[in-house]
Amino acid sequence: MSEALHFAEHTLQEATLVIMAIVYTSRLVWLFRRFKAGKERQGPTGAPNTTPRKGFLYSWAIIGMPWVMESSRTKPIMYGTFVIFHLGVVLAIAESFIIPYGASMLAANPWLATLIQVSTGAACAVGVFRIIRRVSDSNMRAISSPDDYFSLVLLTVWFAFASLSAPNQGVPEWVLLTYFWMTAFFLLYVPFSKISHYLYYPITRYYLGKSLGNRGVYPIVPSAPGYGESTAK
């Protein structure tokens, strides 16, 4: 391993991880200290078996229940691409730890490298699909900022290099170097971009779920079918 690759896999990653942790921490401190949470005073409404606690737990889990939200239920392909894309993110991040600190795992378990390669490769394909959608759909164009395009392109290219780097052994060094430098950039850029949305997901969903749980809206009862037919008992 060259000195440059060693630096990229270890020193660079560790430094950027520390910076990211500091930025994220200060971000959360800002969010929690600067903004006071609104208080819910009213008593519960809706079905008696719903509570604020059940509401926020349900709200956190909603992303894994595509049948619940109409926007997921009626667009299974979009939901599928969401799953592939985010699975790709998880495995590409995991890869950035496995290669420097557990390369023997990859050598001993060729299926693991294959899994990462296929998943990040699929995520890369989804990334391309998403870029095309964002560019070709006028509504998507209208709501997109430079950060949206850049983040998507960044991730798509990063997926490609994560896929190529996954076997580690026998991978050209420039590919690995690119992957690790991109990972480092990714770690530095994320807190300032929309990619940091995963930091806010638990917070927005907690408050929304707590309120809707208190009001009996969560858990959602999907629309009953049978319109046009009498449902009289």
């Binding site: 809706g46 009862v221 049978g226 319109y227 037919e229 009289a232």
Partner: peptide
């Protein structure tokens, strides 16, 4: 406010031909 089922229960008690529209409730 989660007021979904009570109006339907009431409707089924005071009318003889209740039909759901679609989508309904929270949707």
């Amino acid at each position: 406010c989660g007021l979904f089922e009570e109006p339907r229960e009431l409707l089924n008690l005071v009318t003889s031909d209740f039909r759901e529209m679609y989508p309904n409730r929270a949707e």
